[in-house]
Amino acid sequence: MSDSLRNKVVIVTGASSGIGRSVALESAGRGATVILLARRKDKLERIAAEAHELSGAPAYAFVTDMSESEEIDATFTEIVKVTKHVDYLVNCAGFGQFGNFIEMNRRVITSMFQVNVLGLMYFTRLIGRLMMDQKSGQIVNFGSIAGKVPTVKSAAYSASKAAVIQFSNVLRLELKPFGVKVMTVNPGPVYTNFFNIADKSGHYVENVQKFMLDPDDVAWQVVHYFGSSKRELNLPLSLALAAKLYNLFPTIGDELSIKFASRK
Rank of each mutant, 00 (worst) to 15 (best):
I72L: 02
G179E: 03
K41V: 11
G94E: 01
Y60F: 15
S262R: 00
R39F: 05
L175Y: 05
R125Y: 14
L233Q: 04
S22E: 15
Q166L: 11
G31D: 07
T83E: 04
L256R: 08
F123L: 13
V86M: 06
E68K: 15
W220M: 13
V222H: 08
K84A: 14
L54H: 09
P177I: 03
K148P: 01
W220N: 14
I19K: 03
I102C: 10
G29E: 04
G96M: 06
D3H: 13
P215G: 02
N7V: 08
K181C: 01
Q114H: 11
M121V: 12
D217N: 10
K264E: 13
G119R: 01
V152A: 12
Q209P: 03
P58E: 08
F211M: 12
F226S: 08
I127D: 04
S55T: 12
S228I: 06
P236S: 04
A59H: 01
S22P: 05
S27C: 00
R172L: 07
I258R: 15
E206F: 07
Q221G: 09
E50I: 07
K210M: 14
V115R: 03
L171E: 00
D87Q: 09
R129I: 07
H85C: 10
R106W: 12
F195L: 06
L235M: 15
A61M: 03
P236H: 05
T77A: 15
I72F: 00
A261E: 03
S27K: 04
G20F: 08
N7G: 06
N186M: 10
I252T: 14
I145A: 07
K8F: 03
T77Q: 14
F167I: 05
Y204T: 01
V223P: 05
D216N: 14
I127C: 02
